[in-house]
Design a protein around this nucleic acid. Structure first.
Lengths: 182, 182
DNA sequence: TCTAGATTAAGAGTATTTCCTAAACTATCT
DNA sequence: AGATAGTTTAGGAAATACTCTTAATCTAGA
């Protein structure tokens, strides 16, 4: 969630391991500990949870220059309830939990970098929560289009529906209404 | 959101200004810039937004040892869309935006402290979002009771309803059902 | 003690959303 | 190139979760 400057990308690149995930490969599976922090170089990931009734809920997409990990699992080292999956072929830079703790000890910059990064994530998450509390699916879809304008045409609508918390059929209705309105 | 150790509380106390807010006083009003970061020593605050249709949505309560501020406004120095208000007489420790930036320059500890603090906030916020995406009001109320067990009897039900995103009348129905079920 | 706000109650109503079925389209795999 | 599986659109019926309204009771603050 933090667009890095060129210098920062270089610092990060030197410490982090690059890795390619093919479409539909898992970066994290439910039940595993999330022991890496991921920075998306190119591509797109989605983080989601499958609830008791079997429906999936996408918490977050991560596209170019965004960070993603299940922070709950990453810091507690407990098994995650989430999955992180490649929506497209995706190149990430990864750092292992222990290595990150090492870096924290060595360089102030990283502590600061990650503080700012997490702050921005939190701000975004708060906005999203507010949206969900106060708006119906139509309004939420409009905001999604604004926030993820580049993404809307790259991913299946089923994912967007799952992000918005509605069925794909209902999203289709909303889209239809939108077109007719204009 | 970060329970501090005794030493950390002392460090923080020496740098932060204490301030008492009486019940219903505002720490932050809509339209003002959120230029302090607040740590609740005793009492309870609520942060909320009033939407276009006039209903209020409580994003977060902050009780003893929790942190609260509108981070979006705090870091951008732009006017906030939120209010932060004392639910009870509340003592907070406050640090001004500039002073915090100063501290960040001087002590690594604070950078780290706030990184961890914000991480925990983010984890909590994510859980809440997940709740809202996947559960109806009944389930959300049960989780509220678990997470804020000490709070449930301290604050009016209207606030709880506003936190859950439902009308007070409907919360009353849920409560009634609960009692009859047992 | 008075008043305003909070809570409970109960019934009718609504709207958002799901569910189901089905057809058309798209992408992927062999 | 053809088969297969997944995606999107469509439409109508149905459910459910929740609101709105009214009203009576209770509670806390001035």
């Amino acid at each position: 969630m933090l667009p890095l400057t060129v210098e920062e990308v270089e610092l990060v690149s030197s410490k982090f391991q690059p890795r390619l995930y093919r479409k539909r490969q898992f970066i994290l599976q439910e039940g595993d500990v999330c022991n890496v922090f991921n920075f998306v170089v190119i591509g797109c990931l989605r983080m989601y949870k499958i609830d008791e009734s079997g429906s999936t809920h996408i918490i977050q997409f991560a596209i170019e220059n965004w960070w993603i990990s299940d922070m709950g699992s990453f810091y507690s080292m407990k098994p995650s309830e989430m999955c992180i999956e490649a929506v497209e072929d995706t190149t990430v830079l990864q750092i292992k939990h222990n290595d990150l703790l090492e870096l924290y000890k060595k360089t102030t910059k990283l502590d600061r970098l990650f503080r700012i990064l997490v702050e921005k994530s939190l701000i975004g998450m708060q906005q999203r929560l507010l949206q969900n509390l106060s708006s119906d699916a139509r309004v939420r879809y409009e905001s999604f289009l604004k926030q993820y304008s580049t993404l809307a045409n790259r991913i299946p609508n089923t994912y967007i529906a799952s992000y918005l918390g509605i069925t794909p059929e209902f999203l289709s209705k909303i889209r239809n209404e939108r077109v007719n309105r204009k």
